[in-house]
């Protein structure tokens, strides 16, 4: 069984894993990182989205062995010193979640979207989040939250 070393939310783990083990199952079943849920088996829903070396991936379509040597950030690692990430706060303020199951993936995908376009239009947001499905909100408030998150993240960057 291959041994991998992976850093998840700032903690370094060494694990022996079957080559077929999915990253999301490593996170959930082995490391107790249950904040990242699974919503489908065809990589359509995006609920399991995490950051792998700074880029969003669907952790159901990454093997744990592929994450060897990588840095993973999950929804559980977003807050710093007990303060919500601006995108998490924006989702709260805009009521962009109901059942909350898609939320971890949606927040991670939204943050990644801003990496490419820090000030996205509504249309850019809607297309940028196409890989993340939500069944509760009808997406209106998610779009608003991403706009708000973009604004406060923009401010966070420019504020000295």
């Amino acid at each position: 069984m291959p041994r991998i070393a992976v850093t998840v939310d700032g903690i370094r783990y060494e694990e022996d894993v079957e080559p077929r083990l999915l990253l999301v199952h490593l996170l959930r079943d082995r490391l107790g990182k249950t904040g990242t849920p699974v919503g489908c088996d065809t990589s359509n829903c995006g609920a399991c989205t995490v950051m792998l070396d700074g880029k969003s991936v669907k952790s159901c379509s990454v093997l744990a062995v592929q994450a060897d040597g990588s840095d993973v950030v999950t929804i559980e690692g977003l807050a710093t010193a007990g303060t919500m990430h601006p995108m998490q706060r924006a989702f709260h303020e805009e009521h962009a979640l109901q059942c909350g199951y898609c939320t971890p993936g949606m927040v991670m995908a939204a943050i990644d979207l801003l990496r490419e376009d820090p000030d996205p239009s509504e249309e850019t947001i809607r297309h940028g989040l196409e890989g993340n499905l939500c069944r509760c909100t009808g997406y209106c408030n998610i779009v608003r939250a991403v706009r708000r998150g973009a604004q406060s993240m923009g401010q966070a960057v420019t504020t000295p």
């Binding site: 959930r28 107790g32 990182k33 249950t34 904040g35 699974v38 559980e76 998490q88 709260h92 303020e93």
Partner: peptide, 21 residues
């Protein structure tokens, strides 16, 4: 009112049934 439920859902501190060990 912003929802009381949100904080744990946004932080990933959830108890979905599949989380149960």
């Amino acid at each position: 009112r912003r929802r009381k439920e949100d904080a744990r859902l946004l932080a990933g501190r959830t108890t979905w049934t599949d989380n149960i060990q």
